[in-house]
């Protein structure tokens, strides 16, 4: 169970089939520093399923999607989308896919309707079909009331819905959603999730969704692939991944910032493993949480530490990530995002 099973299964009819993908960016400066984004990535998604690509910024998620969408070329490895090789037959891939980039894909100086109609016509729809498809999508995504306003006046949540609608306009076989909910408020995110669930259920599309939100992958993806530093760490259904971690998660919130001291105390408690201190939060795992938690609380009390709250939980995908990489996803995300820049590459010493 500790080995990664993906890549071994021959996915003949898979809508997405990626093997051994590598990509290194060379910065054009005098130093010519090399930045490795992908280090042999394998993926497979069966037709009509949602594959969640989960990892922090810099894990290689966007690079993977850009290669699959024919924007970027891999250094090595192969990738087939809807049966077509992305490097040998990019034109066929482009006809089969919808691509919603991390950044907005609509023209702010056009109206919602103009954006959709233009996208439809560029994809090969005739004028009449493009107009009726635009109406249909505006209605379906609940943005019909703003259809004839410039997109620059739209709210973030509405604009993101339009991005997804633009990706759907030609009824693609495969849809790439690169961080569709990043930057959205919780309400807009919930609405987007409902929309993606409907798409996955109703349209029979294969969807590749990248995210650094665990709950998003958990809720939407049939299969999750956890990536870190351009490699697959593990993959499986969300439930199977969580089941691999036996036992329960323990979370303890401390009154003041002494989680380090608490971690030392907790590590000494029998049955408590994988202790991690993160600010005022102490996270650990235990085979039998119900007996380990009282013992842990007693140990903390004995060490003179005040506990604000404590809880037991079934393992989450974050626990999976933590167990596989030794750090929480949020921590990895913060480390990979210097000064808020969205970079999707792993720095490698040249």
């Amino acid at each position: 169970m500790s080995t990664t099973p993906n890549g071994s299964a021959p996915a003949i009819d898979a809508s997405i089939d990626v093997r051994g993908l590598t990509k290194t960016y060379r910065s054009p400066g005098r130093r010519g520093r090399e930045v490795r984004a992908l280090a042999g990535l394998d993926l497979a998604a069966a037709p009509g399923t949602v594959l969640g690509l989960l990892g922090p910024n810099g894990a290689g998620k966007s690079t993977t999607v850009k290669i699959l969408a024919t924007l970027s070329r891999p250094d090595a490895g192969s990738a087939r989308v809807a049966g077509h090789d992305v490097t040998r037959d990019p034109a066929a891939v482009r006809r089969a896919i919808g691509y919603v980039a991390q950044r907005p894909v609509t023209d702010p100086m056009g109206t919602g309707r103009e954006n959709l109609v233009l996208a439809g016509r560029l994809q090969g729809l005739c004028a009449r079909a493009a107009r009726s498809r635009a109406d249909e999508l505006l209605e379906r995504f609940g943005v019909a009331h703003a259809a004839d306003r410039l997109v620059k006046t739209w709210s973030g949540g509405m604009a993101r819905k339009l991005d997804v609608a633009v990706g759907l306009v030609h009824r693609p076989q495969v849809l790439f959603l690169d961080e569709p909910t990043t930057g959205l408020d919780p309400e807009a995110r919930t609405a987007m999730w409902a929309e993606i669930e409907r798409m996955a259920a109703g349209d029979g599309m294969t969807i590749l969704l990248t995210t650094h939100y665990l709950d998003e992958a958990d809720r939407l993806a049939d299969r999750v692939v956890i990536v870190d530093a351009g490699r697959v760490v593990t993959s499986g259904t969300p439930d199977a991944l969580k089941d691999e971690l036996h036992g329960d998660g323990i979370t303890v919130e401390l009154e003041d910032g002494t989680a380090q001291a608490a971690a030392r105390a907790a590590a000494a408690v029998p049955g408590v493993v994988d202790v991690v201190a993160d600010g005022r939060t102490l996270r650990a795992r235990a085979e039998a949480g119900a007996t380990a938690l009282p013992a842990l609380l007693a140990a903390l009390d004995a060490a003179g530490l005040d506990v604000r709250a404590a809880g037991l939980s079934r393992p989450t995908l974050d626990d999976v990530y933590l167990a596989r990489t030794g750090r929480s996803l949020e921590e990895a995300h913060r480390a990979a995002t210097p000064a808020g820049r969205d970079t999707d590459v792993e720095e490698v010493a040249a």
Partner: peptide
């Protein structure tokens, strides 16, 4: 990027 990933 959207244009380049489409048949445009």
């Amino acid at each position: 990027d959207r244009f380049l990933a489409s048949p445009t």
